[in-house]
Design a binder for these strands. Structure first.
Lengths: 194, 194
DNA sequence: CGTAGAACTTAACCTGCATTAATTTATCCG
DNA sequence: CGGATAAATTAATGCAGGTTAAGTTCTACG
């Protein structure tokens, strides 16, 4: 069934009744997204929270020189959104597109707020989700401020061993904050400690 | 009253009854912290969430060379915690100390989880808090990846005009990810655009 | 007040990573 | 399979920001 992965992922954190699960599923929209096509672009208001049911998305910003900076990868089973745009209903400063052909479950922000009223456990689920995402973001920020490029690459490999296998190298470079050229050089040189 | 600022800050997001407010206050502990003294150090488990009732705290990591990297400032009215340590009950990788003499309201993580059961609105409050903090962290990460030091400084001034007035310059340097020497140079040179 | 320790400044030199550009290899798709 | 396009490599050169070190100003507090 299409919503299995979503419901299972929720069940790991909170318990919903069958009736609650059904109500939730009714609020969802399905969408397929071809590789390299956008879900959202900078400047649009992003009013959906996205669960990746299959495939892989990424969110990224584009700087003044046209260089992309990847903020997040969202493989199967992950959520992704531009929180700033979602919470304030302001134009997004990030883009989200598909790295592979993907299948998405969309939940409109306004629907979620409705659901909170009738399914308190869902609010708990998203609280837990936001707290964990915050913990991750804090750690990544600390890493960005204090580690060298080589250490950040090493971290990435440890934390996301499966992504390293499948992602084009240039995306990894963008995520850890260096150019593809420099990553290539690092990997093909007698590497130093760490 | 001591808990006015806390209750007011909660009331901006959700509504608690008087009875709920009282139950919350009963779970709180007060603590004063002298300037430059630690609330937590790296390696300890941080089991409290902290509301700053007066003064100012900061959280920061220390890298292999002994250099401090500030993750967050928490002036009066803000929350601060090491989420990783708090959620997983693992030793913290961040330090938290007082930049000024401060007065703190502490809430133990286990108490919060208890309170969620009897005060659903409190869970909503912390969901909103976590979501907003996440939005901020995402934006700061994007800035760290894509902006120059001068742009990050300019951003900081716009976003935290009051902090710029009171904070020692070296803390601002640490927050935006440069050395105090370089910040000083930037500020005393014919500055470029942005 | 005075003085000791912070905080800030200045300047010379250094380096990690960026930029550019040319070449090679991999991947997609008709 | 083959040709086009994207990804990865290599190498020369450049620069933002770091490092070190010495000097100066600020600030706390006895």
């Amino acid at each position: 069934m299409t919503f299995d992965l979503l419901l299972q992922s929720i069940a790991e954190k909170v318990n919903l009744t069958k009736a609650e699960e059904e109500r939730l599923v009714l609020a969802c929209k399905l969408r397929r997204l071809k590789k390299k096509t956008f879900l959202y672009q900078e400047g649009e208001v992003q009013d959906y929270v996205v669960f990746v049911n299959g495939g892989c998305l990424r969110s990224y910003s584009i700087d003044d020189n046209g260089v992309e900076h990847i903020l997040q990868f969202a493989p199967s089973g992950w959520w992704i959104a531009d929180m700033q745009s979602l919470l304030n209903a302001t134009p997004a400063s990030f883009n989200i597109d598909a790295i592979e052909d993907s299948e998405l479950i969309l939940l409109k922000q306004s629907e979620i707020n409705e659901l909170y009223r009738t399914i308190p456990q869902l609010e708990r689920y998203f609280r837990i989700l936001a707290e964990r995402a915050l913990a991750t973001a804090q750690q990544r920020l600390a890493d960005a401020l204090s580690l060298t490029a080589a250490e950040r690459y090493s971290n990435f490999c440890q934390r996301y061993p499966s992504l390293i296998q499948t992602l084009p190298q240039k995306y990894v470079a963008s995520y850890i904050g260096i150019t593809p050229e420099f990553l290539s050089k690092m990997l093909n040189q007698p590497m130093k400690k760490s």
